[in-house]
Amino acid sequence: MANFRQFRPDDLNKFSKCNLDPFTETYELGFYLQYHAKWPSLFQVAEDQHGNIIGYIMGKLESSPDYYKFSEHYLPWHAHITAVTVAPEARRLGIGKMLTEQLEAAADANDAWFVDLFVRSTNHKAIQFYKSMGYSIFRTVKDYYGDHSSDPTKSSEDAYDMRKPMKRDVKKEHIRENGEKFEVDPSDVW
Rank of each mutant, 00 (worst) to 15 (best):
Q49I: 15
A90S: 15
I81D: 07
F43Q: 12
P76G: 03
E62N: 07
S64I: 04
A90P: 06
I53A: 01
V84G: 01
M98T: 14
G55P: 09
F70E: 11
F43T: 12
P76R: 09
E47V: 02
A90Y: 01
G94W: 00
V86S: 04
E62F: 13
M98P: 08
Y67M: 02
K69M: 01
Q49F: 15
D66K: 13
I54K: 03
Y67R: 06
L61P: 00
A83T: 11
K97H: 10
S64H: 04
Q49T: 15
G55I: 15
R92Y: 07
Y56V: 05
M98Y: 11
A105R: 12
E72N: 04
L75Y: 11
A105D: 05
E101K: 06
P88F: 07
Q102A: 10
L103V: 10
G94K: 03
I57L: 12
A87T: 08
T85Q: 08
E101P: 09
G51D: 01
Y56T: 02
E89D: 08
P88M: 05
P88T: 03
E72L: 03
L93C: 06
T82K: 12
T85I: 04
R91K: 11
I81L: 10
K69L: 02
I57M: 11
A90F: 08
D48A: 11
Q44E: 08
M98C: 13
G96Q: 07
V45E: 15
G94D: 08
L93N: 07
G51I: 01
I95M: 11
G96F: 11
I53N: 04
L61K: 00
F70R: 14
V45L: 10
W77M: 07
L103E: 09
